[in-house]
Design a protein around this nucleic acid. Structure first.
Length: 481
RNA sequence: GGCCUCAUCGUCUAAUGGUCAGGACACCACGCUUUCAAUGUGGUAAUCCGGGUUCGAUUCCCGGUGGGGCUGCCA
């Protein structure tokens, strides 16, 4: 058995997107699972579409997800002589030919064919050129491409690991351009040549490549090369069941990371889109994925990317974090929200995080959630109202809370402060005091409980004053309304 | 249009020639609770349609329908 070798072969045309991440993951897993090699190859054969910085982003993203590659990045743009040589070889064997047709002619041909309801195909016009004619044009430096010479009337079939036997008639195949007029290869030539030269055993890629796979099969046979295994992954779909793409909103992995999705969660989520372990386990780390992964558990049908389930999964991962780890990861978001962390004791910040940890779906939510810890909240006094009580009763409740706090000796434990309140409330309605108290502290309809919040404030030297100040503010608001 | 391909709850999916068609997200109800979250319990919800094969088909076959992909000197 030869060593398993897979490759991730993105084109550097922007930020790595979520579909690419899944492809890379599966390729990585399959290589690791078999103690093989995972190779990064950059398909930068379209000069016009290449975006500076993409390569760095791809490398960095793979690193962020611990999808370490063993070889590469290999840039196709630095291997032009190799592709040229192979294109030449095909010409020599009669499997390819020079084409001098201008783009205008091709456009017109296509238009005509479409009007006649014929499939757009090159008409092999330049194949009719004599050897001398071709030579003359080449000597005259006429712009040209090299096309593959697809034979007529052949059945081309290949076995796909996921889909089984796929077969098409060569009559449905176009004489694909292999080498462009700028000397760069097209995907079809470059990928095929490289996959062979790099000893790729499993060509794992998106299903959008199925229609051109027969062309690649033809190329392999032209060269006399053995076929690798083809694994065409089901597509990742948007909510409208279209291929996930930039047009359909957020797909850049970088954007997800910036919103505060944890790489572990994102990877776990994406792993389950098109693959599943056939058990009921849903939470997987990279090591577990490597153990469980296999190609025969891959699905055929496209999978809709459901952000709600990702949110849930991210929450699961956030909750599983040690609070110190959460702090390290979430600090940038707190700073971005304008909180001057250095002004607060670490203990205070950790307590705050502990309060919100179970509530977070993504790290970016933290600023909005905890801002009342850093500045006095603004809110509509009506929010203070518990059930239907009137303002007099409300302010009485707040006064009671005030009195209890005043009598408390800070610093104080959560239990002590809680006991103090419950002793005062007795068997009366707890909400009558606790609801307005909590709103006075947070300005929010939904938040952690008042004891937890006061417990966090208690860490601050002026914690008691802050609490009393907010109670006073609440009482004033009631009188103003 | 042509070629290729896919089809189980709204979504991700499991399973089987005979099951109450299972799990997860979301949703709903209840419990816990001052609110929210987390958590616990329960619930609503699916085999695209039509023919075959078969004692029996969601599963196998054929045909339809629907979706998707491709149809570039993009990848």
């Amino acid at each position: 058995m030869p060593e398993v070798r897979t490759r991730f072969a993105p084109s550097p045309t922007g930020f790595l997107h979520i579909g690419g991440l899944r492809t890379a993951l599966y390729e990585f897993l399959w290589a690791r699972k078999n103690n093989g090699k995972f190779i990064l190859r950059i398909e930068d054969t379209d000069v016009k579409r290449t975006v500076p910085g993409s390569l760095e982003n791809i490398v960095q993203t793979l690193k962020d997800f611990r999808l370490n590659f063993d070889e590469g990045p290999i840039l196709q743009s630095q291997r032009l002589d190799i592709y040229f040589k192979h294109a030449q070889e095909l010409i020599d064997k009669g499997h390819a030919y020079h084409c001098f047709c201008a783009p205008e002619r091709l456009d017109q041909l296509r238009k005509q064919q479409q009007e006649n309801k014929q499939p757009p195909k090159y008409d092999k016009h330049c194949l009719k050129l004599s050897k001398d004619e071709t030579e003359a044009k080449l000597r005259a430096n006429e712009p040209h491409v090299i096309r593959m010479n697809v034979p007529a009337g052949q059945r081309i079939s290949f076995a796909d690991v996921i889909h089984g036997q796929i077969s098409v008639s060569s009559d449905d195949l176009d004489d694909q351009v292999l080498l462009k007029s700028d000397g760069f290869p097209t995907y079809h030539l470059a990928a095929t040549v490289d996959d062979h030269l790099m000893g790729i055993t499993h060509v794992i890629r998106g299903e959008e490549w199925v229609p051109s796979a027969p062309k690649h099969i033809l190329l392999y046979s032209f060269f006399g090369w053995p076929l690798p295994q083809f694994v065409h992954l089901p597509l990742l779909l948007s909510k409208t069941r279209k291929k996930l793409s930039k047009r359909e909103g957020d797909v850049a992995v970088k954007d997800f990371l910036e919103q505060g999705y944890l790489p572990e969660a994102l990877l776990n989520f994406v792993a389950l889109l098109g693959w599943n372990p056939k058990t009921e386990q849903e939470i997987f780390n990279l090591r577990e994925l490597t153990e469980e992964f296999s190609l025969d558990k891959l699905n055929k049908a496209g999978a809709v990317f459901d952000p709600e389930k990702l949110d849930w999964l991210n929450g699961v991962y956030i909750r599983s974090l040690k609070v110190e780890d959460l702090f390290a990861r979430i600090s940038p978001y707190l700073i971005r929200a304008g909180f001057e962390l250095e002004k607060y004791p670490k203990e205070f910040l950790l307590r705050i995080l502990l309060l919100e940890q179970a509530r977070l779906k993504k790290l970016s939510e933290i600023g909005e959630r905890v801002k009342y810890f850093f500045s006095d909240p603004a809110y509509d006094p009506e929010m203070l109202r518990w059930k239907k009580v009137d303002n007099r009763q409300l302010s009485e409740s707040l006064e009671i809370a005030k009195k209890i706090i005043i009598n408390c000796q800070f610093p104080i434990s959560k239990e002590e402060i809680q006991n103090a309140f419950f002793a005062e409330i007795g068997d009366k309605d707890k909400g009558a005091i606790l609801w307005p108290l909590r709103v006075a502290l947070t300005g929010l309809e939904a938040s952690p409980g008042p004891f937890e919040i006061m417990d966090a404030f208690a860490v601050l030297p002026n914690g008691k004053e802050i609490i009393l100040k907010r109670l006073n503010t609440a009482i004033e608001k009631l009188f103003q309304s």
